[in-house]
Structures are given as structure tokens and as C-alpha cells.
């Protein structure tokens, strides 16, 4: 099964992420997006982005409160094509 998905960031920039190659945050960094982060471990919530469309899977369950419509890229991977707002 393919683990490569398309991610649209802020409605314009498009990148391809491979879920088997690390977290969404790492993929965003690799694409030069400079996402916010602190703990990289799901408990500070600093990397929070808006999840407009698509599914993600948490590889570590986040401790920070994830408000409806948000996701924490530091501890999740894409499970479908995504649209996010940074």
C-alpha cells in the first residue's frame, strides 16, 4: 500500500509526504515550510495547524488539547491527501 500523500499547505503550496518516513512536521520542515515547534513530542501544542481536509493518524497520542479542526503535526502522519493551514 502506498504511503505517499499530497499535502496542500495554505491553499497553495503542495508537497508530497511519505508517512513511513517520519512525522508530518518533519515533512513540512523538509519542504522548507518552517513550521512552529517546541517539544516535538505532542505535549506542548506549539506546532498546531488547521486541518482543513483529510485524515491523519497519531503515532503518539498528543497530551495537548487538540481543538476541533486542528492537528499536531509533530506526532502525526498523513493517512490520506491533506489540506492544512499553517
Amino acid at each position: 500500500m502506498s504511503t505517499a500523500y499530497k499535502v496542500i499547505v495554505n491553499g497553495q503550496q503542495q508537497l508530497t509526504v511519505d508517512s513511513s518516513q517520519g512525522t508530518l512536521l518533519e515533512a513540512m520542515e523538509a519542504a522548507g515550510l518552517e513550521p512552529h515547534y517546541h517539544c516535538r513530542n505532542g505535549f506542548c501544542g506549539a506546532c498546531r495547524v488547521q486541518l482543513v481536509q483529510g485524515d491523519i493518524t497519531y503515532i503518539n497520542e498528543p497530551l495537548a488539547f487538540v481543538r476541533p479542526g486542528d492537528c499536531l503535526p509533530c506526532c502525526c502522519v498523513a493517512a490520506s491527501d491533506l489540506e492544512i493551514n499553517q
Binding site: E34, Y37, H38, R40, N41, C44, F65, R67
Partner: peptide, 25 residues
């Protein structure tokens, strides 16, 4: 994080080196 709109213009991190001290790993 607690449901307010961001009130300030500063959207980029002016002290990027701070992050390496805040990464829990």
C-alpha cells in the same frame, strides 16, 4: 490554544535558536 484570535503581528519566531532548548528530546 485556548480559543482566542492571535492579537499580534509577530508570526515568525524572532529567536529561532530557542527551539533547540525547548525540544523535549
Amino acid at each position: 490554544a485556548i480559543g482566542f484570535d492571535a492579537p499580534f503581528k509577530q508570526r515568525s519566531n524572532p529567536l529561532p535558536w530557542m527551539n533547540k532548548y525547548l525540544v523535549s528530546d
